[in-house]
């Protein structure tokens, strides 16, 4: 608590009244609030920077390619002649990956949350929570490596029937691994929501003779529903924006297919593909990444806004 600027003195006689000291107070109190506000504004500038950097080039793109073609055409081939600029194959690829990931992450994530919040004794919780954090902290490029070199050759191709002929790059492997990656997100956000449900509601249900399962699924889950739905929305948004797993394991073939054993391409993987190549700046091929990036940004932003809105609008307060 030592304060070097104001040496302790026995009497206050030498001091002017605080409020009138040079009329303004010490230097730090005049400069720092403004400096700190500037720091806080960095995040606002970041948003502005994202919007500006995406839209300037994206506008250039849409001057050459009509919105009708972008949303109307079913073929995406900016890098080969004849060129085509229909976003649907990339959107379909992203949706296929997201659907597979959601099919894994939502049930397993929710069940994990129920187990952690309603079943697990607290020593077990103290072990399981950090393990889930590790799962969430594994870099996505590592998951991509795992999908490509393990899940596809050693799991999917060992399944019977059509799985044996799965492409080296396929949506199934990437989607499954993206799903595993977002399990911790669903689990921890849902668990937070369940822990906020008051004990008295559970006790009341037990007193009426409910089993533990009935308490979990008919009291706790409905009471925590807004938080659970929000965790779903945020996790799906994360899956849509996931890049390295799909770039490594799902392929680079934009196609309008629902077959998860084929090579596809997502919006994110396309952006990586172009930025890795030798595409010169300023060409229409190069501008595609900004148009696709804009799509990606708008979709994920919308989902995040919806997720936060659900939390605020439907939160049960006890």
């Amino acid at each position: 608590m030592a304060n070097p600027r104001r040496p302790a003195s026995g009497s206050l006689a030498g001091h002017r009244p605080l409020s009138r000291r040079r009329g303004r107070g010490p230097l730090g109190d005049r400069v720092m609030p403004k400096l700190l506000l500037l720091c806080a504004l960095v995040s606002v500038f970041t948003t502005v920077g994202i919007v500006v950097s995406l839209s300037t080039e994206a506008f250039g793109f849409f001057r050459e390619v009509s919105l009708a073609e972008f949303f109307g055409s079913g073929r995406w081939a900016p890098l080969i002649k004849p060129q085509a600029f229909g976003i649907w194959p990339l959107l379909a690829g992203t949706m296929l990956i997201t659907a597979i990931a959601a099919a894994v992450a939502l049930p397993f994530g929710l069940a994990t949350a129920i187990f952690l919040s309603e079943y697990a004794p607290s020593p077990l919780r103290r072990v399981l929570k950090p393990v889930l954090e590790v799962l969430a902290g594994i870099p996505t490029v590592v998951y991509g490596f795992f999908a490509l070199t393990f899940v596809t050759p050693h799991i999917i191709r060992n399944l019977p029937g059509p799985f044996q002929d799965a492409n080296v790059f396929n949506a199934l492997s990437a989607g499954l691994v993206v799903g595993i990656m977002i399990i911790p997100m669903v689990a921890s956000l849902s668990e937070d929501a369940m822990l906020a449900v008051p004990r008295s509601l559970r006790d009341a249900a037990y007193a009426l003779g409910a089993t533990r399962l009935e308490v979990a699924t008919r009291v706790v889950v409905p009471a925590a529903l807004s938080g659970i739905v929000a965790s779903f929305v945020l996790a799906i948004s994360r899956a849509i924006g996931e890049t390295m797993i799909v770039t490594l394991a799902a392929g680079a073939t934009p196609s309008l297919t629902a077959n998860p054993l084929e090579s596809i391409q997502t919006m994110t993987a396309y952006i990586v593909q172009v930025s890795q190549g030798e595409t010169p700046f300023g060409t229409i091929e190069y501008k595609t990444i900004f148009a696709v990036g804009m799509m990606l940004f708008i979709i994920t932003l919308a989902m995040n806004v919806v997720g936060q809105w659900i939390v605020r609008r439907f939160r049960e307060t006890y």
């Binding site: 994202i50 948004s237 994360r238 849509i240 924006g241 996931e242 990606l296 932003l301």
Partner: peptide, 8 residues
């Protein structure tokens, strides 16, 4: 901002 994909 927390929800913006890293590639953006």
């Amino acid at each position: 901002l927390a929800g913006v994909p890293s590639i953006v």
